[in-house]
């Protein structure tokens, strides 16, 4: 555990040195959300109704932007090879990388949601459910997305390929993440989608790191 937190801290330090990257990611997230009112018109009722879906789509697209680099730079400069042959279990380092990725690119999005909430005029009840669903759902983006990033290591046009294979896998997160917040509009209980989302998070936590180690070893063969 001590080693795990050391690795997470190590990853965080590297990212904090490039703190501008996180700012760009949050800006991208806000920008996507701001494009929708310009595209579909500024009817307040319509915007309020589609806000949860828009925010979730923006979060998933933003994740695509940052996932590309989760293993790629270590792969290119050869340090990934050193990590794999080091005595530390690879799964520990993969877990640390996923955690750091979420802390740097997932968590800041949740802090940026209130700004979009104001612009889209989201009711407070919908808003709080949206925050809960994003809190449960965004780690899944890092886990499943990180698995996809490991699969495309060394591929030609890795970024586009990553989106092609990861986006379909993330659709359930989008559906249930949005459904939890939409439940208020539709008069349903938000509990079932939130429970399903939590189940997905637990399943992804159990499966994604080990399959990712498999994919990384495959990439270095």
């Amino acid at each position: 555990m001590n080693k795990l937190s050391w690795f997470i801290w190590h990853e965080l330090k590297i990212s904090l040195r490039n703190a501008g990257d996180t700012a760009v990611i949050v800006m991208f997230f806000l920008l996507i959300a701001l494009l929708f009112p310009m595209g579909i018109g500024s009817s307040a009722a319509l915007l309020t109704r589609i806000a949860p879906g828009v925010i979730w789509v923006a979060a998933i697209l933003t994740a695509m932007l940052s996932l590309d680099s989760i293993f790629a730079s270590d792969f290119e400069d050869g340090s990934l090879e050193q990590i794999v042959i080091s005595p530390t279990p690879l799964i520990l380092i993969v877990t640390a990388k996923f955690t750091a990725h979420w802390l740097i690119t997932g968590l800041p999005l949740i802090f940026a949601v209130p700004i979009i909430g104001l612009i889209y005029d989201i009711p407070i009840k919908v808003f709080s459910l949206l925050l809960i669903s994003m809190g449960i759902g965004t780690p899944i983006l890092s886990l499943i997305g990180g698995l996809g990033a490991a699969l495309v290591l060394g591929a030609r046009r890795g970024g586009v390929l990553l989106a092609l294979i990861v986006l379909p896998l993330l659709v359930p997160v989008l559906i249930f993440g949005t459904a939890a917040a939409d439940a208020v509009f539709l008069g349903f209980s938000p509990k079932p989608p939130l429970l399903l989302l939590s189940a997905m998070l637990l399943a992804a936590l159990a499966i994604a790191p080990s399959i990712t180690t498999l994919a990384i070893r495959r990439a270095l063969e």
């Binding site: 699969l151 046009r157 390929l161 294979i165």
Partner: peptide, 8 residues
């Protein structure tokens, strides 16, 4: 995705 990854 399977086919694209195979050829990438």
């Amino acid at each position: 995705g399977f086919m694209a990854l195979n050829k990438a």
